[in-house]
Amino acid sequence: MFSPRTISLFAVLYGTWLLLSGIWEPFLMISGAVASLLVVIIAHRMDVVDGEGHPIDLTWRAILYYPWLFWQIMLSNLQVLRIVLHPRLPISPVAGWVPAGQSSSVGLVTFANSITLTPGTVALTVLEDRIHVHALTQGGLDDLRAGEMNRRVCQMEGNRP
């Protein structure tokens, strides 16, 4: 019950409560603590406070990964913007499989989410070792197959491919 994971879940929930309320009255602060504690107890009884439901062990590596992803999202936003505004609409839509080297489901979901977040590529189907991707241009699919994003997500989940 009092593992580091449940304690950190309580801290995250209570912190969110305090930041969202912004009213520093004893009554609201105590109700927040009670509500967070109830959620933690119920989540613990449901057995969902694990590496999948609350992956705190990834926090530091995720903090390194997400800024890079954000930058990639901005770059591909510009590419799709150029395509949409281009008079001749230079698209070459393709669908194909991209290898995924992640070993945990959190890593796999992060990779699929990252693919969908970058405009120009959407994850259609996710299997354990590969992802079916639809891309707006052949270049977008080739970039994914080059494996830079795959490698970085593997690094984030702490597994060297």
Partner: peptide, 18 residues
Amino acid sequence: RLPNLFARIHAGGLADTG
């Protein structure tokens, strides 16, 4: 402007992200 459903999803992604 984009011609079919799958291509249009990418245009929607422009608003969702950037």
